[in-house]
Simulated assay, not measured.
Amino acid sequence: MAIAARSRTGFYRQEVNRTVWEVPERYRDLKQVGTGAYGTVCSAWDRRSGTQVAIKKLHRPFQSKLFAKRAYRELRLLKHMKHENVIGLLDVFTAEILLDQLRDFYLVMPFMGTDLGKLMKMERLSEDRVQFLVYQMLKGLKYIHSAGIIHRDLKPGNLAINPDCELKVKHFETKIYGLDFFFSNWPNFYITSLLQILDFGLARQAVSEMTGYVVTRWYRAPEVILNWMHYTQTVDIWSAGCIMAEMLLGKPLFKGNDHLDQLREIMKITGTPTPDFVVKLQSQDARNYIRSLSKVPKKDLHFVFSKASSNAVCVLEKMLLLDPECRVSASEALELPFFSEFRDVEEETEALPYDQTLDNADLPLDQWKRHTFTEILTFRPPRDSRETSL
């Protein structure tokens, strides 16, 4: 191992909240905007593109095999996704020039000012705006799902809105603090909006086994709450339905205090499961528990959402189904009449195949580090910055 690390030419050091950041000269005016369990995010001015960006520094990505695998997977997925409704990677860098000196690396993404959760606290959204925003979310989900990826943590805080009134889905494992947001003269004033989905640290391939505790409870699909069955992309459709419902109601639809309370809140709307659904459950304990519950009839969503249009309620009826096999897919949802005003089929593209071979491998720490270093060195910026940047 080398005794001391040499910084690359063209990099400089800056202390941000008692942490040293070592970044290329092109990125200036670093300011911390959020921090979480897995990383810290700073806003910065990119002198080359003339735009504000977000730079994420992962917390000790090579401290263990688990952290190294997570960091590798997040980097690979960010590199792979290229769609206007999925957050893109603008740059990735490390100040280290040798593999054995690699300790940190940084991810550069578009900067977002606020998120949907904060917006909903400030004001009630009109149905026109709900149409517009949910359409963006579904386009992003269609793209991600086509690559075999499940997001697993969709929630209002992961629907980020940039200062130019564009909506994006993100997750920096942080809370982003930023600019106020407003719509002017809606719907007479057209606003270009991008919904970009991130949180590839938690995302998994559909074929992988997953545990449910990481997902925010209020937006969690019922099959995830009790680990009833093998998950599919429709867990994200349930979350999308919960988000849409909250946008229409002005408050969360299912606000459980714990796992079982969350399930009870869900069944007040969906009704208790049918025998056909119960027999699909993998766990005998889950089957016994469901059979022990008092029978509750399904509620009419037109009554629950009495102020919403029938087209809006139709979307929710197809998303918020207890049986995941019966839920609409993102692609199918986009075809519903509720979205016809904004629909552009040419923008509803699918992803190139994603090679998940290494993502499911069990490798020693030094090999994860080597693979990550290779991914950093082989990164090429997007040719058309409009794919990923603001």
Rank of each mutant, 00 (worst) to 15 (best):
F67M: 11
Y72L: 13
Y72N: 12
E74P: 01
L75W: 10
L78V: 03
K82V: 11
K82G: 01
H83P: 07
E84I: 12
E84S: 05
N85V: 10
N85C: 08
V86N: 01
I87V: 14
I87P: 00
I87C: 00
G88K: 13
G88V: 08
L89A: 09
L89V: 09
L90A: 10
L90H: 13
D91E: 03
V92K: 04
F93Y: 14
E96R: 08
I97A: 12
I97H: 07
I97P: 02
L98S: 11
L98Q: 09
L99E: 14
Q101P: 02
R103K: 15
D104Q: 14
F105G: 01
F105Y: 12
V108G: 06
V108A: 10
P110C: 04
P110A: 12
F111E: 02
M112N: 11
M112W: 02
M112F: 14
G113H: 05
T114L: 08
L116R: 00
K118G: 01
K118P: 02
L119H: 06
L119Q: 07
M120Q: 08
M120C: 12
M120Y: 01
M120T: 03
K121A: 06
M122N: 13
R124F: 04
R124D: 03
L125D: 11
L125H: 07
E127M: 06
D128K: 04
D128G: 15
R129A: 15
V130L: 06
F132S: 15
Y135R: 10
Q136R: 15
M137F: 00
M137C: 10
L138N: 00
L138K: 01
K139V: 14
G140A: 09
L141G: 09
K142A: 08
I144K: 05
I144F: 09
I144Q: 09
H145T: 09
H145V: 08
S146C: 09
S146I: 08
I150M: 15
R152L: 15
L154H: 13
K155I: 00
K155W: 11
K155Q: 02
P156D: 08
G157K: 05
G157N: 09
N158L: 00
L159Y: 06
I161K: 07
D164N: 07
C165N: 15
E166K: 14
K168G: 03
K168F: 06
V169C: 11
V169E: 00
V169P: 00
K170F: 07
H171E: 05
H171S: 08
H171Q: 01
F172A: 13
T174M: 14
K175R: 11
K175V: 06
Y177T: 11
G178C: 10
L179V: 05
L179Y: 03
D180A: 04
F181D: 04
F183Q: 10
F183K: 07
S184D: 15
S184N: 13
N185C: 03
N185H: 07
P187G: 04
F189W: 07
F189Q: 12
F189I: 13
F189H: 05
L194N: 04
L195F: 12
L195G: 07
Q196A: 11
Q196S: 14
I197M: 07
D199W: 00
F200E: 11
G201E: 01
G201C: 01
G201D: 03
L202S: 05
L202H: 02
